[in-house]
Nucleic acid binder design. Sequence first.
DNA 1: CTGAAAGCGCTTACAG
DNA 2: CTGAAAGCGCTTACAG
Lengths: 335, 335
Amino acid sequence: MTSQPRPTQADVARLAGVSTATVSYILSGRSSRSTPASPETQQRVFDAMEQLGYNPQWAARALKRRPSGIVTVLTHVPLPTLSSELISQVQDLAGAREMETVFLQYSDDASLARQLRLVRGGLADALIVMGLENMAEATQSRLAALPIPVLAVANEAPPGLSLIRRHERAALIDLFAHLRRSGSQGVHYVTATPRVNRRVLDRRTAVVTEAAAITGVVPVLHRVAVAPDPVQARAILDGISVDGTQAVVCQSDRMAITLACVARNAGIAVPGALRIAGMGNIAEGALTQPSLTTVGVRDPDYRSVIGHLLDRAEDPTIAPETFDTPWELLVRDSA
Amino acid sequence: MTSQPRPTQADVARLAGVSTATVSYILSGRSSRSTPASPETQQRVFDAMEQLGYNPQWAARALKRRPSGIVTVLTHVPLPTLSSELISQVQDLAGAREMETVFLQYSDDASLARQLRLVRGGLADALIVMGLENMAEATQSRLAALPIPVLAVANEAPPGLSLIRRHERAALIDLFAHLRRSGSQGVHYVTATPRVNRRVLDRRTAVVTEAAAITGVVPVLHRVAVAPDPVQARAILDGISVDGTQAVVCQSDRMAITLACVARNAGIAVPGALRIAGMGNIAEGALTQPSLTTVGVRDPDYRSVIGHLLDRAEDPTIAPETFDTPWELLVRDSA
DNA sequence: CTGAAAGCGCTTACAG
DNA sequence: CTGAAAGCGCTTACAG
């Protein structure tokens, strides 16, 4: 850490013997200038920047040319609501447009409010929100009122947001039909106790229940804490007969993986004595032993959705859109 | 998303019938003014802000009062090098100083360079770097040359950085002694194939080997990919006799947890037929079944270190410091 | 107790 | 082909 004052564009200009305007044009490439600086001038400027260790001041640039060049991803912590595919695709596409990606994490209402102040303060041209459905309604509305385009992964949201909607229903019906066919007489559904917005988890539960009903079963409901915890998993298993007639569907793959691991450790054969399925199709599910039967998006590709969001950032007249990602039943070994 | 031009301080001032200076002083609280505005004026200003939906423009503020009020955490993705304790402690302490926390994630050299440009551009008053040891030397040097204080979790680094150093040696000796005592004749060490900076993982391996040697054993080395993968775990297990005479030490808790789960799924009793230990003491290790024997920091508390970093951000004359976190042997059920 | 004004480091029409 | 100058939205000495 050196504490000498940082070089500015003016310093570079002086050293290169040109005006700051020229430095700025050369730096940005974006010549709306009729003609670019001569190659020699350019070289002199580059050399000067190099020699001084010049770095453009982000705040000054952002202040002048309003779009900040930043796309922000807002996630919850410690609950990992991040799809790694989504992250890397955002970084790719943003990078291609010379935008930076920054991540903001909130853990409670207070920190969320602080992060939103940053966003409203101009630290984002576009916002991607994970875990919207767990936020309080008031928060959701505040997100929708943001002066930048917002993309959320959610089935329901206030108007004004672009949405990635998951269509679980058909896949769930397939899942329950599959479980029946393979001999399950009883079905259990393990879901988290909602933290903030109980309504949404309840909706999800309703969809599950309904899908089960269509295939002629009534699932037994189990509620656990959000973070998958082996002790709780054990307690659930203790209440289920493991004679091969039962199946457990978990609200998340992570829960299902924990449950399967705990089950097998307890000597319960999966899927022989107990079938277990998850929801979400996280990458890890394909690697576990037994591999996890689940419902979810087969090949998560959000590129077109992200592209839409970035387009909206550049052209505010583009209306928000809803994207439907069809979920499928992915039969693997655990059920 | 609404696209009307955002209200500025001038708008608020006009509506409240005061000058922008007054608005600014009221907003920041930091009255270096002899006297604060009268309560009625304050109220008028707050009302005006409310009515207009005013939000201070972050870039303009940052441009004027140099410290940006942001502490940045730089992490690698998809490899999670984040300690959740560290994150929440950073957010807490930064929040107490009215600073915001943003996260930057890099996946390769190109994205890292882009993120560093943001940081150098003033998007951070202080930087916390996870996974420094896996970066190329040149990158480490660039981090050390940053004009803001940097804190890294690493045992070695170029001068100029504040460091959290982990002292594994004594704990590892304890671990190997413990394994011997409980009947392990052979010891295996499972480590990742280094991605970028091979030197560091090799150093870690050397420390492990040395600690083992002190207790009179020579560990068998197994190399796997970084992400814990059940298939590879299975392959390793196939090469180890599971007659209760062997112990496996993994470079990370996550690897150890995967290995233990795969082992038990394969009918190998842990610790009866095979002892398994990890490194790092992640929270999950205490919850798995069997709970994970490991070495690491018993109660991760980085508050004083983070405090030091934030102090440096406020007072550049404070020298970087190195903090030693003593690792301990944490005996649980798996070994 | 409050306002007018300078200036942070950039960008970009505009005038040579 | 290049420079002088205005201005982005704030903060903060300074003068009333």
